[in-house]
Each structure stands twice: as structure tokens, then as C-alpha cells.
Amino acid sequence: MLGLHGYEASLVSGAWVTLQVALSSLFISVVLGILTALAKLSKATPLRVIGTLYTTVIRGIPDLVLMLLIFYGGQMLVNVIAESVGYEEYIDVNPFIAGVLTIGFIFGAYMAETFRGAIMAVDQGQLEAGKAYGMTPWLIFRRILFPQMMRHALPGFGNNWLVLLKTTALVAIIGLEDMVRKAQLASGSTQEPFTFYFAVCLIFLLYTTVSILLLNWAERHFSASVSREA
């Protein structure tokens, strides 16, 4: 095909790791994003301050620096704590967990901004009506807020996802065997780096294209109530 010298299976397994990292961090970022958005919109000042601090600091620092900080710093912290409770052996931080936590943590800040705007776009009167019906906050969120905010959140959410997908390439730097790392290994032994990095590019383009198609579908789905099409 492309002349991958039998490294096809290795690249495919790397592509699967990339997808796992991306989807796991997406999950974390969405949960963090919604919580932070609610915190920033809450009446409690400490919550608002924490939310604002989190989103401002994270968006001011490059993802790679944060990832190195959490990976190497976390490594040190874990070992210091383990030592203080009497654990002798050296603990290696799992790069998958460090990568997913970092990317989730970073994109939580971007998601928070998206969701904050989306929540504000939902008619306040409907939330009050839910309260008047005696719904619990969770029920109001599930039945009224969430379905309606998703329509407003989708474009921003889609953008964040596409950026997140590409950010996963950084996990190769902390040693996780994603497809970028696999390409590094393969090009080391075949002396054909361009071929392998180009193959990785094509897989990223495939992910991006499929994502865009799915996002367009989702946008139609969540806008069903307001669209004019039959």
C-alpha cells in the first residue's frame, strides 16, 4: 500500500491508543467543563473565583508545559507521598493516566467557556418553571437544561473536540505508545520517517473528517425542535 514494511498493525494499534486517549480525556473535560460552568454561574463567590482562576490559568499555559508538569511533578509527588507512608519501591506514573488527566484538565477549561455560554442561552423562565413544578436540581438539569444547552454548545464543543484530538499527539512525548510514538519507532528502524509521519497525518485526517460528519449530524439532531425542515 504505502510501503509500511509490515508496521501496519503497529500503527493501527497506536491509532487505537490515540482514540482511547482522546475519548477518555473528552469525557473528563466535559464533566469538568459542565461543573466549572455551573460554578462560574453560581451565586457563591468562592465557587466563581475558583472557576475563573481555573479557566484563566489553564488557557494561559501551553498544553505541553502542563503535561510535563503533571507527568514529572506528579511522578515526584506520588513517590514522596508513597515514601512518607513507608512504601519503598519507586512508582512509575502511568503515561496513559497522566496524559488523559492532563488533556481532560486542560480542555475542561475550554469546555467550561463553551458550556457557560450555552447555559446562559437557555430560557431562565423554563428553569424557574421546573422549580415551581417541584423538580429536583438534577431533574431540572437532565430534563430542561441539558437537552436545550446542547444545541447551543455543539459548535463550540465540536471545535474543542477537534483541537483535543490533535493535542493527544503530545502524549508521545511522555512515552505513551500512541500512533505518533509508533511512527517514531517505525521510522527509526526503517529510515523512512516521512512515510510513517505522513501515514499518521492521514489517520488524523480520517478522525477529523469522521468527527466533522458526526458533529454535523448531531447539530441537526439537537436543532430538530427549531429547524424548519420537515
Binding site: 499527539a169 512525548i173 511512527a183 505522513f198 488524523f204
Partner: peptide, 21 residues
């Protein structure tokens, strides 16, 4: 589409390591 759909890190590798090919 290519440059916006792929990570900057891979683009850098493509040029830094790949050109030697």
C-alpha cells in the same frame, strides 16, 4: 485541511525528520 486537521507536532516531525528521506 491538511494543516488544520493534523497536529503541529507531527508536522514538525514530518519536516525535521522526514526531509532526510
Amino acid at each position: 485541511y491538511f494543516f488544520r486537521g493534523t497536529p503541529l507536532l507531527v508536522q514538525l516531525f514530518l519536516i525535521y525528520y522526514g526531509m532526510g528521506q
